[in-house]
């Protein structure tokens, strides 16, 4: 039998997963899976920006934070201000206001990132700045966004209005917060939407062409400025949705909420293969499950270390990631 190097990775992962389900705590795996779906919203944006603009966007985590706070403000200030405070829906802790705030936040955040691109990244591109420099600029943007968040909303945790609800109790002592199910499902639908966009939409096809070969897409007549704009719109709106969902599932939001998951989403992207949206999804699921499952034995503070160990293992076995092509 001829097992390719990276197939070992899957073999080990599946054995570890089975062992966890049999001996460990299945709840952790299922919650990790749902968390992975939320991470994937950040990771897909990261990987698309990398694919088209060729730089690692360190501001992705803080964009998620910003999205969370924008949703919070829409719900607690704007909606509450006009008297729109729906009670929690069914088994979930949250109601219609949060559900409606998500698309609004996605819209606002994509406008913000498109403006950031015009103000900062586009200028660097036209000056032919190196991708390293642009990455560092994005780190600056990350810190700037966090500063703005701290200035506007303060350093104390903020809370979405919520009602406490019973966990779903499944066989095998599996306990899942209903929120995570619906949030995971929403994340999956959004990911599916991006997949369909990239596969069938005109601009999705232009995005794939540009990621594949920027010069050829230019000389084929593709308007690369519009491609870049779409890249930011998708990346920003997914980050905003992911940030809101993260805050809802954690029951609170802090200025560091997004920054803390920047490392896991980078790990997801590298695991799946940089520039590959499907890779980002699979990577995020693996990272999400592994981080959650590790808390069966390890202190939760080691979660990022778990993500990084997996990422480094992947880099050693198959540097281009699970879905990366060799070249």
């Amino acid at each position: 039998m001829n097992i390719k190097n990276y197939d070992y990775f899957w073999v080990i992962f599946i054995i570890a997963l089975s062992a966890l389900i049999i001996f460990g705590q299945p709840s952790l795996i299922i919650n990790g899976l749902l968390l992975g779906f939320i991470y994937s919203l950040g990771a897909i944006g990261l990987t698309l920006v990398f694919g088209i603009l060729r730089f690692g966007n360190f501001a992705q985590g803080d964009l998620m934070t910003l999205g969370g706070y924008i949703s919070l403000t829409i719900v607690t200030v704007i909606f509450a201000g006009i008297g729109f405070t729906g009670s929690a829906l069914g088994p979930f802790t949250f109601g219609l206001p949060i559900v409606l705030a998500i698309p609004l936040t996605m819209l606002l955040t994509s406008i913000i990132v498109v403006i950031l691109d015009q103000l900062i990244y586009k200028r660097l591109r036209t000056r032919q700045a190196s991708t390293m420099l642009i990455s560092i600029a994005s780190l600056g943007v990350a810190i700037m966004i966090r500063g703005l968040v701290q200035f506007l909303w303060g350093n104390e945790p903020e809370y979405f209005p919520r009602e406490s609800k019973q966990f779903y109790m499944l066989p095998l002592d599996i306990r899942i917060p209903p929120d995570n199910v619906i949030l995971g499902l929403m994340a999956v639908l959004m990911t599916l939407g991006v997949y369909l966009f990239l596969k069938y939409n005109k601009y999705g096809k232009f995005m794939r062409a540009t990621a594949n070969n920027p010069n050829l897409s230019l000389s084929t007549g593709i308007n690369t400025s519009i491609v870049i704009m779409w890249t930011w719109i998708i990346s920003g709106s997914l980050a905003a949705a992911g940030g809101t969902m993260l805050a809802v599932s954690q029951a609170q939001i802090l200025p560091m909420t997004g920054w803390k998951i920047l490392l896991p989403i980078f790990a997801s992207v590298i695991l799946g293969g940089i520039g590959k949206p499907i890779g980002a999804l699979v990577g995020a699921i693996i990272i999400g499950i592994s981080m959650e499952a590790s808390t069966a034995w390890l202190n939760p503070t080691y979660k990022p270390a778990v993500a990084f160990t997996i990422m480094i293992a992947m880099l050693l076995v198959k540097p281009n990631g699970l879905f990366g092509e060799k070249d």
């Binding site: 005109k202 232009f206 062409a209 010069n215 084929t220």
Partner: peptide, 22 residues
């Protein structure tokens, strides 16, 4: 162009379709 004159990650059909979308 001389080299890299097709979109290698896209199908033949997609390669041919791109000009019609442009």
């Amino acid at each position: 162009p001389q080299a890299e004159n097709v979109f290698t990650n896209m199908t033949i059909k997609e390669n041919l379709e791109i000009p019609s979308l442009v």
